[in-house]
Design a binder for these strands. Structure first.
Lengths: 344, 344
DNA sequence: TTGAAAGCGCTAACAG
DNA sequence: CTGTTAGCGCTTTCAA
């Protein structure tokens, strides 16, 4: 009796299907994975039983036997920035269409966390993994190599990355911003950058600005370059600091849109006219930035597209073993209302 | 030769460890899962070898043998709304701390998609699952029941849900909004609601408004109630429609902050003074809403907290089999600057 | 405290 | 075209 309950309680397995359909387990497996190998009636008979019994395959058993999980991992710095959400959305959507599932973890911009999360993902079993940017600890590269797991990185811009990278040219984008501001006759340019330590994107953006400044024969005043964590309030605070300088900047370049919005909100609060008294630029083109008043001049980062392309590359690699090619997408300057002629 | 390469190419398994450490596989397993059962020196010896060989356990094999995956699934409507991102962030964070991993999929507000995704998650193998809201197709409940998978839903407010639910009282929040507007002497109140079909949260919020209107003896004018998909532009468009009515509302209640921001942006564009000429309310309290000018009056939805609580309940259930208790968190009205006295 | 060995449910040779 | 069967790498009795 107890036994019977236990038996009923057990999940339906491939053996149950095989028995009920009067075929071997291999045939059931084929009906599900390689239907074209079966005679039409056998296939249909098996599939009918599968439906009748509400059979759900065991991913664990499949993974163990076939050595693939149809699962792809991702480690993102945070969920609290719409830019990563957009990439993950594109990534998930594309994976899902090909019947892959997404395992997501968050590193909180912490290298140690990233190692831990990677180890966990590898242990769980993944066929491929998505990483953000190019700055990763040696252990990460090590684990990746030893596990021979397919990897793709997005958001980065290095041409000589150790892992395939679908990104865009961060420094070039920075240069476009500087060129734009210079064309508006700004001479005194400041920057609210993200924390550059361990963050290649933030570093690339900042260095791009600095080198462009030099290119245009402008002075790079370190006291006008502030690094902040990405948040509205940090952006606000940074702008306050900048405005407190002996000679405040006439234009502020921000490391991303969140910081830029913070700066813009602060300017609003202080009744500083943007762009008449102060120009502000962002980076990312979050959906909301076009609706702000004034709307934000920013870089149109292809966040969703990077996710989609990354997924496509991964799937192709998994299917046919083609090595993944790095790709540089374009990220154009979007001139909107927060930038204007420098006050005389 | 080829054989040797193949051998080297193979992943390190528990057998390799057992052999290298001169113990049985059971001992290795114990060293990793129940270290307290081993003598100190045996344990340490095994662990040393584990590190030396860079051993990574096979999640598939573990799952197959132990019938648990240490993986939890989640199906969210979309990544394109910071509110879900916040919940997922809290959820992931909490799971991660207990060494669980998160499998995320997106339904795009489509019941068919949800079924497909659930089936996929179940097949991949999950120990528990997080769902948004209480509206789910019969098949979802069916699958859940048959798989005996631990479930929790967040964001919903029904007291008599079929699945445990960690949410808040949506109708009550709506009532608070109406009461607030009434106290400001608004008599002509409109609403830009989310699409209510298949969305219990949107429905609860809308119905909450309608019934509160009645409670306060106000007329519910259906032409002032519009349903829109959640996006800034839909919010803008809806406000335009509302303002085109013969007698436009003096206050507009929005189904969420995204719609509210859209309405606010539209009002800004049309140079309509908020709140002097028009009051607007949101729902969710997205981080950005406090920085807008005017800042948005909205409902402080405990999005992250719901994620955290859900994760805690799940983990407790998985560990000790305690059934999950539904919980109603509070979601208070946050009176900010977009609401004011009705124009006379 | 440890080891041997029987599965877990599926895939993929191999054989027919 | 289909069935038999040997694993996949781990957990977990059961015995020692």
């Amino acid at each position: 009796m107890a036994k019977k309950i236990a038996a009923k309680d057990r999940n339906v397995t491939i053996d149950d299907i095989a028995k009920a359909a009067n075929v071997g387990t291999a045939t059931v497996s084929r009906a599900l994975n390689h239907p074209e190998l079966l005679r039409k009636d056998t296939r249909e008979a098996v599939l009918r039983v599968v439906h009748e019994l509400g059979y759900i395959r065991s991913g664990a058993a499949m993974a163990l036997a076939s050595n693939q999980t149809f699962t792809v991992g991702a480690i993102i710095p945070t969920f609290n920035n719409a830019i990563f959400a957009a990439s993950i959305a594109g990534f998930e959507n594309e994976l899902s269409r090909e019947n892959y599932t997404l395992l997501v973890t968050v590193s909180n911009f912490d290298p140690e966390q990233e190692i831990k999360q990677l180890r966990k993902l590898l242990e769980r079993g993944i066929d491929a993994i998505l990483l953000i940017g190019l700055d990763h600890s040696e252990q990460v590269f090590d684990l990746l190599e030893r596990s021979r797991c397919c990897v793709v990185s997005i958001f980065g811009s290095s041409k000589q990355s150790r892992i395939p990278c679908i990104g865009f040219d961060n420094p070039k984008a920075s240069e476009a911003i500087v060129a734009h501001l210079v064309s508006l006759e700004h001479q005194h340019i400041g920057m609210i950058s993200g924390i550059t330590d361990g963050n290649d994107r933030a570093r690339d953006r900042k260095n791009g600005v600095i080198s462009a400044l030099q290119t245009h024969g402008l002075n790079h005043d370190p006291s006008l370059f502030i690094e902040k964590h990405y948040s509205h309030s940090q952006g606000r605070q940074a702008l306050r600091t900048l405005l407190d300088q002996p000679t405040p900047p006439s234009a502020v370049i921000c490391g991303n849109d969140v910081l830029a919005m913070g700066a813009l909100f602060e300017a609003n609060s202080q009744n500083i006219q943007v762009p008449q008294q102060l120009s502000i630029t962002g980076f990312d083109n979050l959906p909301i930035t076009e609706h702000l008043r004034p709307s934000l001049t920013t870089i149109d980062v292809p966040s969703e597209k990077m996710g989609i392309e990354a997924a496509k590359s991964i799937i192709e690699n998994l299917r046919s073993g083609t090595t993944i090619q790095s790709k540089l997408l374009k990220a154009d300057l979007l001139i909107r209302e927060t930038t204007g002629k420098a006050a005389p």
